[in-house]
Design a protein around this nucleic acid. Structure first.
Length: 492
RNA sequence: GCGGGCGUAGCUCAGUGGUAGAGCGUCACGUUGCCAACGUGAAUGUCGUGAGUUCAAAUCUCAUCGCCCGCUCCA
């Protein structure tokens, strides 16, 4: 069984094997930022590939998209992020514990809600916060709080080199809004009919108040999101459909069932726009063995598309405000909003409506880490510990390693030829140095499912040894059949 | 941000004021020839960074950066 019981073990493994490094390490590191090394980038790319294949390519009802990270500032006004994607936090002077102001309860009140909406930063921050009767949830002292401090959760940047007329922009805190902003484009150009989805993988940025959990909660992270548009009334059905589909995706890629479960959100925990939400959680082996979220699947209703219809009607006000998006009010919803530009006309029912949206939103970095941790294994072989990563074939960074048994008698030449042939089809690795047993074990640690060894017999009958990672079993395969044999086994 | 722990070779760590170390890993050569073998040899350190104290700092002091646990948050 795996012996990764602490986060440090995982960090160490990731570095030692070249999966994940701290960003800017030679400068002492940059908090909350991480780089993927040679094996890590292959793993991460494979995770993304597997997601894209499952969510887009294998389905007839989902199309892909790749939006810019920077978007029109009004996108974030409409989505609610500009006003509400911020937390107001007060610190207890007694015990220095920080608590979200909206989580504070008065004396003798019951325990604070675990999850409430983000605050409207401009309005609430402006109001005098009376915390004199509030209870510190940590030490129980009443009314000993600092002034509430606002935390802006969106990264700001400037667009335009000329400082005088540059515009404040935001790095997207989620990829979803780019999909909503392109809903009309996709509808008009791809002949999709509801129900259908638009999928996207890309970087998002959130100025989290605290990070600190390796690549688990970083300020820059990669999401794989699907917005699945459906007719109101069918949303429950599709919610269940995607719950199942997404859960099975993790299982199919090898995550152990006992480490994966759903966590339903309570109704008071839901975001203001969501009708339902469930998390897919993975039980990481570190800490208290806590379940941590890999993906959230939400029923976002018609909230986002309706909001953007309001946003479109607010554009003039935005121009007049010279771009200060928090100073303007979003225009009221049109009475005829069901027929607005982001509505959908159902040809069969001869009916116009704003679609409901089911959103499975997965964290790529988190998933990659879960796959890595779940694949890690140690076993005893002849008194020695064998470390290996039992990656699903689709996720393995390297699919096959090719060795000459020894560095002579023409074996390197034959092995090189095989390597040059196979690498056209999948990621391969060639190694001729040192004892072959050591080379096998090295590949075990990288999670390479197959090793191919050219030996003395190869010179006589054109067969090679095919050694399998998980069982260490060896079979002889003729070089002519090697490619088709591997492609079948690897399902490539 | 606050509290606690920590930062020395790629990794794990020893080294508490006096010449920078070990194991593993890496590389080379020899031997071996299908599972981390053996022998010999080699490379690799701004001791996280900066300042201070001192004849002398990895070691003491201060600041700073980063990591882990907690508060918090969430994909």
């Amino acid at each position: 069984m795996a012996k990764l019981t602490k986060l440090e073990d995982i960090v160490s493994l990731c570095k030692r094997r070249g999966f994940i490094f701290q960003s800017s390490e030679i400068y002492g590191g940059l908090a909350s930022c991480y780089d993927y090394g040679p094996l890590g980038v292959e793993l991460k790319n494979n995770v993304k590939k597997a997601w894209w294949k499952s969510v887009v390519q294998m389905r007839d009802d989902v199309v892909g998209l790749d939006c810019s990270i920077l978007m029109h500032p009004m996108v974030w006004k409409s989505s609610g992020h500009a006003d509400k994607f911020a937390d107001l936090i007060a610190e207890c002077k007694k015990c220095n514990t920080r608590t979200r102001v909206d989580h504070l309860k008065e004396e003798a009140a019951e325990q604070a809600d675990e999850h409430t909406e983000h605050v409207d930063i401009d309005t609430v921050a402006a109001q005098a916060q009376d915390l004199s009767k509030k209870l510190c949830p940590n030490c129980g002292v009443v009314g000993q709080f600092t002034e509430p401090m606002p935390f802006k959760l969106m990264f700001e940047t400037q667009m335009g080199a000329n400082v005088d007329d540059s515009m404040t922009m935001h790095l997207r805190p989620e990829t979803a809004q780019g999909i909503f902003a392109n809903f009309r484009n996709v509808l008009d150009t791809t002949r999709v009919r509801i129900p259908f989805g638009i999928a996207q993988i890309g970087k998002s940025f959130r100025n989290e108040v605290t990070t600190k959990a390796f690549i688990f909660r970083t300020r820059e992270f990669e999401q794989a999101e699907l917005e699945f548009f459906c007719e109101p009334g069918t949303d429950e059905h599709w919610f269940e459909h995607w719950k199942e589909a997404r859960f099975n995706w993790y299982l199919d890629l090898g995550l152990k069932k006992e480490n994966l479960h759903f966590r339903e959100h309570d109704s008071d925990e839901l975001a203001h726009y969501a009708k339902g939400c469930v998390d897919v959680e993975y039980r990481f082996p570190f800490g208290s063995g806590d379940w941590q979220e890999l993906e959230g699947i939400a029923n976002r209703t018609d909230f986002d598309l309706r909001q953007h219809q309001r946003g479109i009607r607010t554009l003039n006000k935005w121009y007049e405000s010279k771009g200060y998006i928090t100073r303007i009010e979003l225009a009221d919803e049109a009475a005829e909003y069901l027929k607005g530009p982001l509505s959908y006309f159902d040809d069969q029912k001869k009916q116009r409506y704003i679609p409901y949206v089911i959103e499975p939103s997965a964290g790529i970095d988190r998933s990659a880490l879960a796959f890595l941790v779940d694949a890690y294994d140690e076993e005893q072989v002849r008194g020695e510990t064998r470390n290996l990563l039992r990656f699903h074939h689709a996720l393995a960074p390297v699919k096959a390693a090719i060795f000459p048994l020894v560095k002579k008698d023409g074996m390197p030449e034959i092995a090189t030829n095989i390597y040059n042939d196979l690498k056209k089809y999948f990621n391969c690795f060639y190694d001729q140095k040192g004892a072959v047993g050591r080379r096998y074990r090295r590949q075990d640690e990288a999670g390479t499912p197959f090793c191919i060894t050219v030996d003395g017999q190869s010179l006589e009958d054109n067969t090679v040894t095919l050694r399998e990672r998980d069982s260490m079993e060896q079979t002889r395969v003729s070089t002519g059949q090697l490619l088709s044999h591997l492609r079948e086994k690897l399902d490539i």
